[in-house]
Design a protein around this nucleic acid. Structure first.
Ligand SMILES: [Mn+2]
Ligand SMILES: [Mn+2]
Ligand SMILES: [Zn+2]
Ligand SMILES: [Zn+2]
Lengths: 143, 143
DNA sequence: ATTGAAAATGAAAGTTAATATCATAACGTG
DNA sequence: CACGTTATGATATTAACTTTCATTTTCAAT
């Protein structure tokens, strides 16, 4: 048996919460699921409006809140004042390195860093729930 | 000969930029220099108003921008939507761990993590200029 | 000390992204 | 199909800055 698709997971969540299925929400979610970048609400709204001009900002906003709630999207702040959303990575948690000239974003995973974070927290008596690691600098094109 | 005090550094900066000395700015800066937490503009304004009720939000805002500009303050975002300022640490860069229940903030330095960050960036072809590492969790009081 | 251009101040207005409100429309259980 | 529940989209509100502007203050040159 196949793993449930993102749309199926969303459907289950809606059902569990007695929420209703709507064409707008489905279309926004489906559009988002195909994105592989870190997209802002405005960018997603623009994309969605191209095929579905009637859709409003508020519905995109609420849909992304919903997807974040049910774990299908992650909200990120890269310091430019806009929240960006990305699909839940299938290969687990990752961190980001951002070019401060062209805004290119690369992702990385470093198990050793994560481990050192946990150790550091323990030393301070904290239990870590989440963390944020962002490197800012110049990418290879912008050096 | 002594190292220049923060106030002296500020004075030099003002002079170099042909800015003028004012009682308000001096008082705000002096108040901030005595703070050893991560303070928001509103909190600093309140503190300043206790001795100097005439001072306005805009002047506090502009003073903190100035102090950040000349390297005497660092602006931080801990994800609660408010910029917080701290005095330039004398013992170099540090990162933060924040309690998501009581908002307690502890600081730490970990040279090994910094080194792994640099390596990771290099592997991706980036030159790192700055970074942000924040751990979120429960402190010893809140576990 | 006086002058006058430059800079600072504080109140108020403007900005921007996020969030809430509300009248109307769509959904879906029975 | 009825009808209570939920969703939508336009619009209003909020919150944290950031800017504007009339007035005041500073300070270098008389
Ligand atoms: Mn990512
Ligand atoms: Mn700190
Ligand atoms: Zn770049
Ligand atoms: Zn705590």
């Amino acid at each position: 048996m196949n793993a449930p698709s993102k749309m199926e997971i969303l459907k289950s969540y809606l059902e569990a919460k007695s929420l209703k299925a709507t064409a707008q929400r489905d279309f926004i979610a489906d559009t988002f699921f195909k994105i592989n970048t870190h997209i802002s609400l405005d960018e997603l709204l623009n994309k969605v409006k191209r095929k579905n001009p009637g859709i409003g900002y508020a519905t995109v906003y609420r849909t992304m809140r919903l997807l974040t709630e049910c774990g299908l999207a992650i909200a990120r702040q890269f310091g430019d004042g806009q929240t960006r959303y990305e699909n839940l990575p299938q290969d687990g948690h990752h961190d980001h390195i951002i070019c401060i000239r062209c805004s290119r974003i690369e992702e990385f995973q470093n198990q050793k860093i994560e481990q050192l974070q946990a150790e550091t927290a323990k030393k301070l008596g904290f239990t870590v729930v989440s963390h944020k690691l962002e490197l800012y600098g110049y990418c290879s094109d912008c050096t």
